[in-house]
Amino acid sequence: MIATSPTATSAIDAEHGADSAGAGLSWQETGLMSDKKNTRGIRRTVTVLVIVALLVYLGFMWQTAISQ
């Protein structure tokens, strides 16, 4: 998996001082974007978008067919 080394966060620390509330914590530990919440959000987004794409595809063909 991802092996960390000097991350971007440390680069930001170097630039802005070490007053970085989220620095050093993992994405899950910040609580702002827990792995679970993140996965659920992505899953929901993808589900909705796939349904929309399918509806547009089938809807346009259906509409064309019945308008003939």
């Binding site: 971007a8 680069a11 989220g22 620095a23 994405w27």
Partner: peptide
């Protein structure tokens, strides 16, 4: 944020959340 990572950008970036 893209200018806070090294150049060339490392293979993995923002493995921990950045503070901006």
């Amino acid at each position: 944020l893209e200018w806070t990572v090294p150049s060339p950008a490392p293979h993995h970036t923002f493995t921990t959340p950045p503070k901006f």
